[in-house]
């Protein structure tokens, strides 16, 4: 762990001022990931800017009927917020599927979006990793890659994004509000995280000097037919091998609109409009779901230890869509799969 300067900001403007022109400065909110990375010498910020006092802690209705979630709303507070529980239960469930109670109590909404991969090589400075040290090589492609990507990987990186919450946000078509010295902008969730390509050191399209101020949910929350199904190597406190967030709008047995996003399989929460198109107007049964799964996984590629994820993802998608269609979402406390 290296020595660093500490600054505390009391408003967004101050935070932006502190970060301006300092490429090695980092914001800290819950610190649930950044501190770990600093202890491992993976992140070596020269300055850490504490943003926990910024006034970004509210969950508010938007004029358009959606919800605006301040960047500093704690994961636990968000999961138990009545409006989230009632209108966006898939988001509440996805949050509860992640980490532990203690971590969720600390972790912030904005920080969740910015958490880094849990690829073991990224965390170990004794090994090559393109994400940590561009150009050093990817150790995972021919190494321990059980947890790694089957979709959207590159020759440079097959890391996955670790978040559960983001999988639900991707499915819900959330928007990310960003502030900077040059003005504010809004990024569609699908465009927020990026694929590794040949610059895997960049996880997102957030620019230097920008700060996440809020995440906005559109009105549609799929509160009737939804699920968050997460499959992992133990029944709690493990990252997803595969997870699926589903939202369905049904008309009888017919799918009016069907969305699903995958976690644990790519460098970003994975959505595929072509696969969702397969669902539209079709009967909500297993054959339809399997077709959609086939489309989303058409380009899936496995490595020595994670090829099983392709077939596992197929079965998870079918199961999750079935859970959503039946109105029997996966419980995050009872670990029995419904």
């Amino acid at each position: 762990m290296i020595s660093f300067h500490y600054a505390r900001a009391s408003c967004v403007g101050e935070a932006l001022q502190e970060v301006a022109g300092d490429a090695n400065a980092k914001f800290i909110a819950g610190g649930t990931n950044l501190i770990d990375l600093m202890k491992m010498d993976v992140e070596r910020p020269t300055k850490v800017i504490d943003i926990t006092r910024l006034p970004l802690k509210r969950v508010e209705r938007t004029p358009g009927g959606g919800l605006r979630i301040g960047a500093l709303v704690r994961n636990t507070d968000l999961a138990y917020h009545p409006l989230v529980e009632q209108r966006y239960p898939v988001l509440a469930d996805a949050i509860m599927a992640g980490a532990s109670q203690q971590l969720r109590n600390m972790a912030s909404t904005g920080g969740n979006l910015l958490q880094r991969t849990r690829c073991a090589y990224f965390y170990d400075i004794a090994t090559p990793c393109n994400k940590r040290e561009p150009g050093s090589g990817c150790s995972a492609i021919e190494g321990q890659n059980r947890m790694h990507a089957i979709l959207g990987g590159s020759e440079a990186c097959i890391a996955t994004h670790p978040s559960d919450m983001c999988v639900a946000l991707a499915m819900l078509d959330a928007k990310v509000h960003v502030g900077s010295a040059s003005g504010d902008r809004v990024i569609a969730f699908a465009d927020f995280h990026r694929l590794p390509g040949d610059t895997p050191q960049r996880d997102t399209h957030l620019n230097a000097g920008e700060i996440i101020t809020a995440v906005e949910l559109p009105p549609k929350g799929f509160a009737t037919n939804y699920t968050y199904l997460k499959i992992r190597d133990r029944l709690s406190y493990a990252f997803a091998l595969v997870s699926v967030a589903v939202g369905l709008e049904l008309d009888g047995d017919t799918i009016k609109e069907g969305r699903f996003a995958l976690g644990g399989v790519a460098h970003k929460p994975w959505r595929d409009p072509q696969a969702e198109a397969v669902l539209r107007g079709q009967p909500a049964h297993a054959a339809t779901f399997a077709r959609a799964a086939g489309v989303v996984l058409r380009d899936a590629r496995g490595y020595a230890h994670n090829t099983f994820k392709i077939d596992l993802a197929r079965r998870c998608i079918v199961r999750a869509l079935t859970q959503a269609a039946c109105g029997t979402p996966q419980s995050q406390s009872a670990k029995k799969i419904v």
Binding site: A120, D124, A126, T127, S139, Q144, R234, S236, Y237, A238
Partner: peptide, 19 residues
């Protein structure tokens, strides 16, 4: 290749949790 334990922490070295 590195002769090195890659899950050298109790998040990635899995043991049973309450669930």
């Amino acid at each position: 290749r590195f002769g090195r334990v890659m899950n050298a922490n109790i998040a990635e070295y899995h043991m049973p949790v309450n669930a």
